[in-house]
Design a protein around this nucleic acid. Structure first.
Length: 255
DNA sequence: AAGCGTTCCAACCGCGTGAGA
DNA sequence: TTCTCACGCGGTTGGAACGCT
């Protein structure tokens, strides 16, 4: 038994979008938004399209901030760097490139960038291979936990996590990942260990003190209060860690 | 000019996931 | 707890555009 189709294929138009359909979708979304429901949108907008198709058309083509074609050298570097670290997670990669969609980045990688990199003689390690990297760091040694956390709840600066180096001007990049961030001194004072992302970009964190907790979607908490990164523009660990990888991302976030 | 192969990218497909009933 | 549904994602496909012979 297969999966039920998302819409009645016999009654929806498929294939390339006409300028009239584009105009109808753009006009509707600009006036009403998506309403969080793509399934009912086509009917409301007077389109004989599947909701999924509308969503894709809007996200990949009609959105006002979309950039098409003409990837820059800097964007090449970012894509390659992230691909080597997290693999084909195109939506994550695209989130680090202003105005680019996952589809755009994926197409660009598959048709151009991969060939460019291969031609340059670079090897592309799989994320699984990258996960073998074991440069986990521990500050301080778990055997020497700090005695007491600071009384004040620190507002951590994401800058404190940035790698000490800037982007290598040589392209393609070397195989090694970028240096992982040093955790702020406030954490060191409590005794903790931190494992950098592996194949799934997950982060494991443990602290000998109960004052610090980390949550994949919420951020880092210190004494039960948000310590950093939602308020610094990061919405997830993936974003935060992506920020470590490219100085341009850093510049975008803090400019 | 015609035929054929290749490249590129918009669009589709089906799966995983999370929210809500 | 289970089920349903919609969303978002990555992989794949179809066909237009382009280049070569």
């Amino acid at each position: 038994m297969g999966r039920a189709p998302c819409c009645d294929k016999a009654n929806v138009k498929r294939g390339p979008w006409s300028p009239e359909e584009d105009a109808a979708l753009r006009s509707y979304v600009e006036r009403h938004g998506t309403g969080g429901n793509w399934i009912s949108l086509p009917q409301k907008a007077g389109l004989k399209r599947c909701g999924k198709s509308c969503r894709l058309r809007w996200l990949n083509y009609l959105r006002p901030d979309i950039k098409h074609g003409g990837f820059t050298e800097e964007e090449d570097k970012i894509i390659f760097s992230l691909y080597k670290t997290i693999g084909s997670r195109w939506s994550v990669i695209a989130s680090h490139l202003h105005g680019r969609t996952d589809n755009d980045v994926k197409n660009y990688w598959n048709t151009k960038l991969m060939k460019k990199i291969m031609a340059a003689g670079e090897t592309i390690n799989s994320p699984a291979a990258n996960s073998q990297i074991t440069n986990k760091f521990h500050h301080p040694s778990p055997s020497t936990p700090a005695t007491s956390p600071p009384d004040q709840i620190p507002v951590m600066k994401a800058e404190a996590f940035l790698p000490p180096t800037t982007l290598d001007s040589n392209f393609p990049y070397p195989s090694e990942p970028y240096p992982l961030p040093q955790l702020p001194a406030e954490f060191a004072a409590t005794g903790y260990s931190f494992s950098p992302p592996a194949d799934d970009l997950s982060v494991s964190f443990s602290a000998s003190s109960s004052s610090i907790t980390m949550d994949d979607s919420e951020g880092v908490y210190f004494n039960q209060a948000a310590a950093f990164f939602p308020e610094h523009g990061f919405s997830s660990w993936t974003e935060l860690l992506g920020g470590f990888m490219t100085s341009s991302v850093y510049q975008n976030l803090y400019s």
